[in-house]
Write a protein that binds this DNA or RNA. Sequence first.
DNA 1: AACTCAATGTCAGGACTTTGACATAGCTGA
DNA 2: TCAGCTATGTCAAAGTCCTGACATTGAGTT
Lengths: 153, 153
Amino acid sequence: MLENVSAEPSHPTKDVTQHVGYLLKRTQAALRGAMDKVLREHGLTVPQYATLELLALHPGMSNADLARATFVTRQSGNVVLRGLQEEGLITRPATADHGRARPAHLTEEGNARLAAVQAAVYAIEQRMVEAIPAQRLAVLLADLDRMAAALEE
Amino acid sequence: MLENVSAEPSHPTKDVTQHVGYLLKRTQAALRGAMDKVLREHGLTVPQYATLELLALHPGMSNADLARATFVTRQSGNVVLRGLQEEGLITRPATADHGRARPAHLTEEGNARLAAVQAAVYAIEQRMVEAIPAQRLAVLLADLDRMAAALEE
DNA sequence: AACTCAATGTCAGGACTTTGACATAGCTGA
DNA sequence: TCAGCTATGTCAAAGTCCTGACATTGAGTT
């Protein structure tokens, strides 16, 4: 049931499912689902994959850095890092040389695992991007960035 | 640490934080955080608010309907519905007249609570939308819709 | 040197969500 | 009719994530 009950041209913006927030949630959910499905075959969760990707880009990030970058709390980030460490995909010095931050680095296996999943993950993103005209992509990225910045301040 | 390490014009698309998926996640996280903060003051969670909004738009939706519309499992949807029911914001017939689906409806208090939070929530969305040129909004909505549809199929 | 402060890592507890499974209700086609 | 199929609601168990709290470290200030 409930297929397309709407069709009321009264106030178009009154339909919550047409709001930016809802579309954002819907798109994010679709992407998350697709990534979950693919990553599971490789024994990785989405936060784990994100962490590997970030460490490849910025070696030596700390747990707090990674937590901020993946939009989770430090506590959750710590769990992710411990999981990756147990699988031998990253290394962290047992003791911090400066402050308390312990910089994380990808291991050989970590690099290999990341490389193994990147093709599949990028294919998903490609499928998503191809749904819109190519010349609009840059604008879309800029707009998303602006909207996020407006709420973060 | 880690403020702006990048600045490598090698392959712009190689920076994961510039990918559509990452921007999507970031924007969604910012919105979710802002909504969480506001809704908490009114004793509602984001899924609870979304459910109230959907029931106002489409009275009589079942648990399965709502779960699909809010992008959670039926099990989670059931928890949300039970919470709302305990607070007296919605009603569900104890027995289904047709099939197993039990249509949910807002109570007077449910309508009142929804009305009380809508201003605050819409203000957040407004702040987000104002960050981009007004004439781009329609295109943005259409593009998000296309991207989501491409992954759902 | 002593104090204050922010940042980091971590522990304990709880809240939320998911996976997996099962029984029931209605529809569809042989 | 009846056997399959789908959809729905629900239970149990597990996983994930967050809130709240605390100790430690380094920088800035007095």
